[in-house]
């Protein structure tokens, strides 16, 4: 089953660092499904923002943090996720906020 663009790109990551990368190098950061590969991410971004062209995708996997229940010895895990930094063709931009 193929995933829709919005299923692949979950949300933008809006932080100070992402802000700097966006203004300096047209690089935008997203939280994406861990299963998605770079091609899928590229296609999804281009589908959601039709006016931009993706030149490069860097990804990194994050393991979910271990969380303990307060007052008990139960141990759980946050879900793992994938961060994708998408570089756009020079001059292209995305309004995230």
């Amino acid at each position: 089953m193929s995933l829709s663009p919005y299923q692949i790109i979950k949300r933008p990551i809006i932080t100070e660092e992402a802000q700097i990368q966006a203004t300096k190098g047209s690089q935008y950061t997203f939280c994406v499904v861990p299963d998605a590969n770079k091609h899928q991410i590229r296609d999804a971004v281009e589908a959601i923002f039709p006016d931009v062209k993706v030149t490069r995708v860097n990804t990194m996997n994050y393991d979910g943090k271990v969380k303990r229940q307060a007052g008990s010895r139960k141990v759980g895990r946050r879900s793992k996720w994938k961060k994708a930094i998408v570089t756009l063709r020079a001059g292209d931009s995305i309004e995230l906020i």
Partner: peptide, 16 residues
């Protein structure tokens, strides 16, 4: 605002 140091949040985000 989460993701930003105090006083570093962009204006647009504040407006939203």
């Amino acid at each position: 605002i989460p993701g930003f140091r105090r006083g570093k949040a962009p204006r647009k985000l504040l407006e939203r």
